[in-house]
Design a binder for these strands. Structure first.
Length: 570
RNA sequence: GCGCCCGUAGCUCAGUUGGAUAGAGCAUCGGUUUCCUAAACCGAAGGCCACAGGUUCGAAUCCUGUCGGGCGUACCA
């Protein structure tokens, strides 16, 4: 059956003598106040024919025959408002959501297309800090949203496992390292060495030269340096995998920067052949001054490589391997220039896919008193944050629902949900200031609020003595006619639109905000005495159970896109 | 200096791609539980949408400029 908005667009287009597509594009749910389900602003259409929009709306309203599924067509000033019969819209939205179930909100518009998502990408030998959560959680959510739109997604963890910093670490370890402490303490010990190196470097600048030499040796294949590097990497990956398990984040590929080591000579040769390389102060650069992008250093004075060199190799390799539709880089906004340079160089190399590469930036995580700095040891370990959140969730459960059978599991779901949601709820470009109170908040616009709302839905089914999956044969959707019900139905009907926008804009917060408004609508319904489910007459009860089920599906699917679990009880 | 990003309630943020009277959460004050979990709900208070111009029937949204903040600006990533 044709979706209701399309049918309205057809009716309105006929009455207005305007193209259906134009009308369909203008048709939108009105802002909260109105009662109508859809509204059509008539300004543009009126202007095109030099008429008064108020007149146009009034004439159109008179010309449209009000027949099911429409209950009312009204001209409100320059707007044309449409209201559906309660049963028609409820059947389409609620019935549709229940029928689609896990598929509700998805689409196949990306079928046959592959998107590569480069995200998380922490640096080896450094702790997985709270600041890595941003790329990890945002990138993972973008990947899930794209999959929901039908795209094939290749998630790549571009581990920072190559570069001068390993020269630094090798130097630090050779000078001050202690085998037993490395064995026993792992990453925190490596962090200690890294911090010490950066402190001592202040007084002894020659240390930096030593570090560059060590990295050069590493790149040249020096056995000793290799062994140390492999050791650092092994210690780090163990910790990272633990964190990813906790967050439920997976990758198709764990190809770090070192993976491209043997692929860089080819790129450098291609750059050379294209005449893009210049010598400048001993270094090898690509000059992008004409594009207003400065110069990009592809090789240092000592011939060792840089970040951009590896990213060029990675981009070419990825296109060769995946033939991607888009390649996304979920990396902090601070690296905007780097990506502009990278994409521009690919363009200059004549790579046809250069235009399909997208930097998806996000804002900096900062402390109240300034920037987070690994070099100074100013980091908050992600695991500490998660542990505290889970601990607090456990405490709250013991207070509010001490009989809950699955306490540990739910505490984990809720605690982690709070931390993850907190990072996804605002537009990603905004800088965020780390605040324990905010991260550990479970009330208001939070993940636990959404999870709690979902649990309420599940609880209604328990109270009704019904399995949520069980479907009544006949539901009289016309019973859903009270205002709180109608508003809940309207919002449920918009999941797919919001998933689409989130995919188009690579913006998980669109889903997060949508879920908050869905939960708010449901809770209003839930708290309204007129809308009680279990005590209602049999017909109304069935209809409301269907509405609760549709809400539950919407919340559960949306939470899943963000990487949050949806417990049935908490 | 130049480039990119941000500026909406005391604080943290939404604002459906330019539409109707700018909305939430937190904090403050007041209320709701013999009734499906109060991690909730209802109400009060809180606004020069940084500022100034411009485009438009219409601007928080688009353009220009100013101010404020953040980030970046070659041998780190």
């Amino acid at each position: 059956m044709t979706p209701l908005p399309d049918r309205v667009a057809a009716l309105a287009a006929a009455a207005l003598d305007a193209p259906v597509d134009d009308v369909r594009a203008l048709l939108a749910p009105p802002r909260d106040r109105g009662r109508a389900d859809l509204a059509l602003p008539c300004f543009q259409i009126a202007k095109r024919r030099g008429a008064n929009p108020v007149e146009v709306a009034r004439a159109a309203a008179a010309a449209i025959a009000v027949a099911p599924p429409l209950a009312e067509v009204e001209a409100a000033g320059p707007y044309l408002n449409f209201t559906f019969e309660a049963g028609a819209i409820a059947e389409e939205v609620v019935g549709g959501a229940i029928a689609a179930d896990a598929g509700y909100g998805t689409s196949d518009e990306g079928a046959g297309k592959t998107v590569v998502v480069d995200f998380s990408s922490p640096n080896i030998a450094k702790p997985f800090g709270i600041h890595h959560l941003r790329s990890t959680v945002i990138g993972a959510a973008i990947g899930r949203v794209l999959r929901a739109r039908g795209y094939a997604v290749e998630g790549v963890n571009h581990l920072g496992d190559w570069g001068t910093q390993f020269g630094q670490l090798i130097v630090a370890y050779r000078r001050w390292g202690d085998e037993r402490r490395l064995d026993g303490e792992g990453i925190p010990y490596l962090l200690e060495l890294y911090v010490r190196f950066n402190e001592e470097k202040e007084a002894a600048p020659e240390l930096q030269d030593e570090a560059r030499a060590a990295f050069r040796a590493l790149e040249a294949g020096d056995a000793d340096c290799r062994a140390l590097w492999a050791r650092f990497k092994e210690v780090s990956e163990a910790e990272f995998r633990r964190v990813y398990d906790i967050l439920g984040v997976t990758f198709e590929h764990f190809t770090g920067e070192s993976f491209y080591e043997d692929k860089m000579p080819e790129v450098l040769a291609e750059l050379e052949a294209s005449g893009l390389l210049e010598q400048s102060d001993d270094a090898t650069v690509v000059n992008l001054e004409d594009d207003g992008l400065g110069v990009s250093l592809v090789k240092k004075g000592d011939d060792s490589t840089l970040y951009v060199t590896r990213d060029l190799a990675a981009a070419i390799h990825r296109h060769r391997t995946f033939g991607f539709h888009k390649a996304l880089y979920v990396v902090g906004a601070a690296q905007s220039l780097h990506f502009k340079q990278l994409f521009r160089i690919l363009e200059k190399l004549g790579k046809p896919f250069a235009g399909d590469m997208v930097h998806v930036p996000f804002g900096l995580l900062r402390f109240k008193d300034g920037k987070m700095s690994t070099r100074q040891g100013k980091v908050i370990f992600l695991e500490e944050v998660l542990d505290r959140a889970v601990e607090l969730a456990r405490k709250i459960i013991e207070e509010k629902n001490p009989d809950l059978s699955d306490r540990d599991r739910v505490a984990r779901q809720v605690g982690i949900g709070a931390v993850v949601f907190n990072d996804l709820k605002s537009r990603r470009v905004k800088d965020v200031t780390f605040d324990w109170d905010e991260v550990l908040s479970f009330e208001g616009d939070t993940g636990p609020y959404l999870q709690y709302t979902h649990a309420r839905c599940a609880n209604i089914f328990r109270k009704a003595g019904r399995a949520p999956e069980e479907r009544a044969a006949d539901v009289d959707y016309g019973r859903l006619e009270l205002e709180p019900e109608r508003e809940l139905i309207r919002v449920i009907g918009q999941l797919g639109d919001h998933v689409r926008r989130a995919a188009e804009e690579y913006e998980p917060s669109i889903v997060a905000q949508y879920l908050l408004s869905t939960a708010a609508r449901f809770n209003r319904f839930y708290n309204d005495d007129r809308c009680r489910v279990v005590g209602a007459d049999p017909e109304t009860r069935e209809a409301r159970l269907a509405l609760v089920r549709a809400t539950q599906i919407t919340l559960r699917n949306g939470l899943a896109l963000l990487g949050l679990e949806a417990p049935d009880e908490m």
